[in-house]
């Protein structure tokens, strides 16, 4: 959702945002683009159980990904949003077919992480990398996040299939 036009036109974007949030199905997230970092909104949506990842776009605008998580409400109560099925933060259509595939099974940690980050450096925006790992690479997630890449994890009998969308 992009509210930059509203902001430039001097319109108050909050009603539209809240309407969009109310329209989300359980487990769905929201990507928001604004002209400034909407810090008050973090609190509002935090109470509703959303956690956020903000990043500065090259144009100087902001992109914030809100995902339903386990944040607690104002009074310490468990937030309503169910974290059970972490959703893709972007719509299905935005995920192209993988252009590269890595089989990292049988590699000693942190080798899988090195290979994934190395391969991503050779890829372009929007391209998708597929990787098979022995387990969910916990220490890879923060690094992907810091670089703006998106990841989907599919648990499998023999480990995990990762789909990573280049930022």
């Amino acid at each position: 959702m992009d509210v930059r036009e509203d902001l430039r036109a001097g319109r108050e974007p909050l009603p539209r945002i809240m309407q969009a949030v109310r329209g989300l199905a359980a487990g769905q997230g929201l990507v928001l683009r604004t002209t400034f970092e909407p810090i008050p909104l973090y609190r509002v949506l935090g109470v509703k159980g959303y956690s956020h990842e903000a990043r500065r776009l090259e144009s100087g605008d902001w992109e914030i990904v809100f995902v339903p998580g386990e944040r607690r409400g104002l009074f310490g109560r468990k937030a309503k949003a169910e974290p059970k099925a972490p959703p893709p933060p972007q719509a299905e259509a935005d995920w192209a077919e993988p252009v590269r595939t890595l089989d990292n099974r049988g590699l000693l940690p942190p080798e899988p992480m090195i290979r994934i980050l190395g391969t991503l450096e050779e890829m372009g925006p929007g391209q998708v990398l597929e990787a098979f790992n022995d387990r969910e690479p916990q220490f890879l997630f923060p690094e992907l996040e810091a670089r703006g890449h998106l990841i989907r994890v599919e648990k499998r009998e023999d480990g995990a299939r990762l789909l990573i969308r280049h930022a």
């Binding site: 940690p109 942190p110 992480m113 090195i114 980050l117 190395g118 450096e121």
Partner: peptide, 17 residues
């Protein structure tokens, strides 16, 4: 392992570590 992650995590894929 923790030291390596802390020190080189950000550089992974970008430079040789």
């Amino acid at each position: 392992f923790l030291t390596w992650l802390d020190r080189y995590g950000k550089a992974l894929g970008k430079t040789k570590v």
